[in-house]
Design a protein around this nucleic acid. Structure first.
Lengths: 358, 358
DNA sequence: CTGAAAGCGCTTACAG
DNA sequence: CTGAAAGCGCTTACAG
């Protein structure tokens, strides 16, 4: 199997290397009939451009870098899986980075290794504004997954923590919960901040005073959920525990069950994320789900549009959140889902999380 | 920030581009004193080579392709996380591929995009021998995760399904289980094949006739585990159900509990994989764990050795398996772990799964 | 031990 | 609309 290059194609169809390059990249003007001949030759030879050479000479590398906090949380691997699906469909490669030194990232850019960045930061401290500015200056397309920092002009696909938490607040109102314990994640977590924020907004909307909520700090671990509830219940009582993620909800539920409290009869527990096993807990966990796979997929699609078509839709996009109502909140019978609805105003996508299906 | 190239370094230190290249790649002979000067210049300028250019001109691209069946199963994302850890430590990039067309893979090679391949196939039918031969012919380093096909001469890191299942058989003997239902995964799954194989070997070793095991086909889904047990229990009885993965074990357990059987008192259930929630089921699941993270890490380390140092240790490597004894098998009290031990003979690593800790 | 030169496979002004 | 040429940033024989 002879390695076949652009010159091979040129020879085959009788045109120059430059012309072949033009039709492959659909740039400049080429007579339709010659484009056809070139394409035929490409087909016959089964030619695909060498991406290294292309990138080196100033073209696209057809590669997107994905920055993730980790590859362990289902939350992030689902995001990656979605990104991968879109990338493979469009013939792009994904380079993944978890422990990202600034230097390594800049090299990726300067070395023209990647055309664009998909960025996911979990903690405020990991947010590298300098790097973001570098991207802007170099006009490298990027999309941030989750809340962008400070300014609103960063292209981003929002993880709708606020909307999801509001949905949960509304559901709490339906149950008539009064004494609420909220377990947060780490202090620096964007997700955690937005979840408590959205929850309080939601409570206000329902006429419940957010001041009634007791907030205890956790760290997203199952153990921290366990401990938070234990400490709290030593001196106080609660109708319900809202943990900022499912792991902590699991820990909370375990503690309650261990001391003989029935969930949800004696105390309700709800979570956030809808990780795989939420459905299989006993009782099954009522929680908020975000479409991480779809978010990754959509983000990569947009990134590719930016790479190929200039800027495309750089606006912020929010995908609808689902409230997965199961049994741990006290609802019984078959599962129901409360889902937000998508909308769009002024080029900004958003959702109305209004509907409640019972 | 001026883009700095090898010529920049050359100018700075007063040597030629060729010499700089030599010291960076530690190739050829360079006088120590000049190497020092070159390195100083590299430091001062913060130079890192453009990998695209390097690859194009015949050097390494410092990139490894990872082929995975999916990014959903914890089994595979843990493998990826391990690979990523090793890659980032050594300054390598990872390109991930899930839905791999042969063409896309060959392009990766011909375009010099990657230096090596980490391959994980889940099903016999997905095994592309032609591609493997292509790799061999081109002398591209690769490592297969899991059982290599046909011949033994493929560098691989084995997932020790057989050893793990043997461990479980031994544990079954301790419990004195007689009537055993084994739920397999899909017919083409390497994992499933090896697990039933190893299990039967293990039973024989314990003096239990493998013919006593009833084998029912599942497909790794929770639902298939549920159905398999339901169908079986309609006409027969069992002391224990061994599911070829934890998802099916979960389904099996659910069915038993739904019809009022107590696990493990009336029927024991064990699984394979030790996915995250195995520990949190009620009762907690006795299962076999394989160090997927370590496997991915080790494989990438070896791959890098092969890339940089010629061939390194191309032998087969097996990492020890753990039997996670929890409650679903009938054991009670604190958790115990039965762990295999590593060994090495004739350059081949292997393990003796002999030890039983009670 | 070191340097000048060719070449890797493309893209992109620049002519025509 | 098309082609000849330069150049992207490296590595690698080939001389010396």
């Amino acid at each position: 199997m002879q390695k076949i290059t652009i010159d091979g194609v040129a020879e085959r169809c009788g045109f120059s290397r430059a012309t072949v390059s033009r039709v492959i990249n659909r740039e400049g003007t080429v007579k339709p009939s010659t484009a056809e001949k070139v394409e035929k030759a490409v087909q016959e030879l089964g030619y695909t451009p060498n991406l290294m050479a292309r990138a080196l000479s100033g073209g696209n590398s057809r590669t997107i870098a994905v920055l993730l906090p980790d590859l362990v949380m289902e939350y992030h691997t689902a995001l990656l899986a979605g990104a991968d699906a879109a990338a493979e469909e469009k013939g792009y490669n994904l380079i993944i980075k978890t422990r990202n030194t600034k230097k390594a990232l800049v090299d990726l850019i300067e070395g023209r290794r990647v055309d664009a960045f998909l960025l996911r930061f979990a903690e405020t401290s990991s947010f590298d504004l300098e790097f973001l500015n570098h991207l802007k200056k170099r006009k490298i397309p990027y999309i941030i997954i989750g809340k962008p920092p400070f300014s609103d002009d960063n292209p981003s696909v929002l993880i709708d923590n606020i909307g999801g938490a509001r949905l949960m607040a509304k559901h709490y109102a339906m149950h008539g919960f009064q004494r609420i314990l909220f377990i947060t994640g780490t202090e620096e977590s964007f997700d955690s901040q937005d979840r408590i924020y959205g929850f309080k907004i939601g409570l206000s909307e329902q006429g419940i005073d957010p001041a009634n909520v007791v907030v205890v700090r956790g760290d997203f671990s199952r153990q921290s959920g366990y401990e938070a509830v234990r400490t709290f219940l030593e001196t106080q009582k609660a109708d319900v525990v809202f943990a900022a993620n499912d792991h902590m909800a699991l820990g909370a539920m375990r503690y309650c069950q261990e001391i003989g409290m029935r969930v949800p009869e004696d105390i309700a527990v709800t979570g956030f994320d809808d990780i795989f096993f939420a459905e299989y807990l006993q009782p099954s966990l009522t929680t908020v789900q975000q479409p991480m796979h779809a978010i990754g997929d959509l983000a990569v699609q947009n990134l590719i549009q930016m790479i190929e078509g200039g800027r495309a839709r750089e606006s912020q996009i929010i995908l609808p959140t689902k409230l997965q109502i199961r049994h741990s909140c006290g609802c019984s019978g078959c599962l129901s889902v409360v889902q937000g609805r998508e909308g769009e105003v002024n080029g900004k996508s958003f959702i109305k999380n209004e509907e409640v299906v019972k």
